[in-house]
């Protein structure tokens, strides 16, 4: 289950500001790559496929009208895998006949592009089994975006089954303060203006007790218990900084948006080795308003983390 990575590859989520609030913190994505293959590729792929097998309703959902967008997502991702990781993936396209070779995993698949009968799964479900990212398709209509398809194995405490079909604002109603100053409306307007060929990305962070990637809402009763088990002895090892690298691509033909989420985790004891990170994170957590700490699930052990960070600061 453990999936933590090297500190050098960890996407540090904070910018210059020592105060954290919800905001539209998306920036242009350069180079425009929707996916990233890391050292834990094989491990995470196996975990994903196991979850998809055991919990198909929890991990995949699609509305029938998303089929064209699903093929576009597959097209974009398979081409990028082959282009940016040529030693691991090969893609041969001969008209509509495609052969995708995952050399890293030792798997080969041929199919006819656009013909769902030539794949044994829906296109999004197929391509999601070859990348570490969770994949969400938001379809645009009636001046709004709707979560109409997704493959989601590593959610940060939300349910694809429950949220499927919802509009952007409906999905985000549980986030306290997200509606204030019409932040939800402004982000929605931003997303609807994303253009093909100009993708964006952002990082989102939280703390978690434990190191599970599969923190679905469905299993919260199990993994949420770890929040009560944080002590000053185990805090550095048990508590992890969890960062989602989220990327947004307009799909030009279907006008949908492909939203890829790559989840990274690092235990606090690794994270704090880098003194500037320790200093800044300590101030941010100190100042963080209760309503954000509550929503991020930090409140039960925030004090223990703060004491740990202060002790570490004194040692420097």
């Amino acid at each position: 289950m453990a999936s933590t990575e090297k500190i050098s590859a960890f996407p540090y989520p904070f910018v210059e500001n020592n105060v954290y609030r919800y905001s539209n913190n998306a920036i242009p994505l350069n180079p425009p790559i929707a996916i990233e293959v890391t050292d834990s590729y094989i491990e995470e792929l196996n975990l994903k496929r196991g979850l998809l097998k055991m919990h198909p309703k929890r991990c995949f959902h699609s509305e029938p009208h998303t089929m064209d967008a699903q093929w576009e997502a597959l097209d974009l991702i398979l081409n990028q895998l082959a282009e940016y990781y040529p030693e691991k993936f090969k893609l041969v396209t001969n008209g509509g006949h495609w052969i995708f070779n995952n050399l890293h995993k030792g798997e080969k698949q041929s199919f006819t592009f656009g013909d769902p009968t030539t794949l044994d799964r829906e296109p999004l479900d197929f391509v999601g089994r070859h990348v570490q990212e969770d994949l969400i398709l938001m379809m645009q209509r009636d001046g709004d975006l709707f979560l109409d398809a997704g493959q989601l194995c590593f959610p940060a405490n939300w349910s694809l089954y429950f949220d499927a079909g919802m509009s952007f604002k409906e999905i985000h109603t549980p986030i306290p303060g997200f509606q204030s100053a019409s932040l939800d409306e402004r982000i929605l307007q931003f997303l609807m203006r994303i253009e093909a060929g100009s993708p964006w990305w952002r990082k989102n962070w939280s703390l978690m007790a434990g190191n599970r990637l599969d923190t679905s809402l469905e299993t919260f009763a199990e993994w949420g218990q770890a929040r009560k088990k944080v002590t000053k002895e185990n805090v550095g090892e048990l508590v992890h900084l969890r960062v989602e690298v989220q990327k947004l691509f307009r799909l030009p033909k279907s006008n949908g948006i492909l939203f890829t989420i790559h989840t990274h985790m690092l235990p606090l004891e690794q994270f704090i080795k880098h003194t500037p990170w320790l200093e800044q994170f300590s101030s941010i957590l100190q100042e963080l308003p209760d309503f954000i700490a509550d929503y991020k699930g930090i409140s039960l052990y925030r004090e223990v983390v703060l004491e740990y960070l202060e002790k570490e600061l004194e040692k420097r």
């Binding site: 409906e170 109603t173 919260f220 009763a221 009560k228």
Partner: peptide
């Protein structure tokens, strides 16, 4: 048998509200 907190998170697809587990 799980204890659930009734929320106002609503799905039109399911015509239902979401019940959360609290720790």
């Amino acid at each position: 048998g799980q204890e659930l907190e009734v929320s106002d998170h609503y799905s039109r697809r399911l015509d239902a509200y979401l019940g959360y587990v609290t720790i």
